[in-house]
Simulated scan of single mutants.
Amino acid sequence: MVDDRPARVEDVHALAAGMPHVTRVAGTGGNAVYQVGGKSFVFFRTPRPDAVDPDTGERYDDVIVFWVLGDEDKAAMVQDPGSPFFTTPHFNGHPSVLIRASRLHEIGRDELAEVVQDAWLSRASAKRARDWLAAHGTADA
C-alpha cells in the first residue's frame, strides 16, 4: 500500500511499535524510547544544549532520533541543507540522525516507514533482521 502523505508524529509511534519484538520504555524525561532486544532504535529526545534554534538559542523540545545502518546512510540523510534530517556534534561518530517533529511533514509517510525499518534493522539481532527481510521479500535476506 502506498501512503505518501506527509508524515506525522503518530506515524513514528505506530511504525516503531509495529515492528516485531519491540518494547516501548520511558526515557529519563518520560519520553518514548522504542527498543528491539533491549537496544534503542527510535527515541524522542529530551531538550539538550546541542540542538538549539539558531535564532533564539532555545533548545529544541521535539527532536526524534533514528539509528541508521552506517556512516554512508547518515551522510546521505544529513548532507543536503534542505533535508529535515540533521546531526549535532554530540552525535558525531554515532550511527543516528535527528529530525524535529515539527519538520516531519517534509517527508512522506512511506519515507518515514523506511527510516524506521532501517533503524530497527540496525539494532535487531542478525536472526531477527534476516527473518524480517525474508518475510518482506527483500533481496537482502
Rank of each mutant, 00 (worst) to 15 (best):
V52W: 09
D80E: 08
H21R: 10
P47C: 05
Y60I: 14
E58R: 15
Y34R: 11
D71I: 14
T56S: 13
V63H: 09
S125W: 02
R59T: 15
V22M: 01
V42R: 05
T138W: 04
F85L: 12
V65R: 06
L15Y: 04
L112V: 13
V116H: 00
S125Y: 04
A101V: 14
E106S: 05
Y34G: 10
W120P: 01
G27A: 07
V25C: 03
I107R: 07
A76K: 06
D61R: 12
G82H: 10
G29I: 09
P81A: 07
D80G: 07
R100G: 01
L121W: 03
M1T: 15
L69M: 12
G27Y: 10
A7R: 03
L15G: 06
D53I: 13
A26Y: 09
G29H: 07
T23W: 02
V52L: 09
A135P: 05
E111T: 15
Y34T: 10
R45G: 08
A76G: 07
P95S: 09
G29T: 09
A17R: 11
F44N: 06
V68I: 15
P95H: 12
G30W: 11
S125Q: 05
G30H: 14
H13W: 08
A135V: 13
L112Y: 03
H21G: 02
W120N: 02
P47R: 06
V22R: 04
S83V: 13
T88K: 06
S83C: 09
M19Q: 14
V116M: 04
I99S: 04
S122G: 01
G82P: 00
V22H: 00
L104D: 01
L69N: 04
V68Y: 01
V52M: 11
K127W: 06
R130C: 00
P54A: 02
F91R: 09
A135L: 02
A101P: 05
A119Y: 01
D140A: 14
W67N: 14
A76I: 13
D73G: 08
D50E: 13
D110P: 02
V78C: 08
D11A: 01
F85R: 13
R24S: 03
T23N: 04
S122E: 06
V78Q: 10
L104T: 12
A113S: 07
A16N: 00
R100A: 02
A7F: 01
A7V: 13
A16L: 01
R59M: 14
L112M: 07
W120M: 02
G18N: 06
V2N: 12
Q79H: 12
M19C: 11
T46A: 15
N92W: 08
F43E: 03
D11R: 01
A126V: 12
F86A: 12
G29D: 08
L98I: 12
N92T: 15
H13N: 03
H90C: 04
R128T: 06
D73V: 15
S83R: 08
M1V: 15
P89C: 09
E10P: 05
S125M: 07
G37C: 03
P54V: 13
L15M: 08
A26P: 03
F41K: 09
L15E: 03
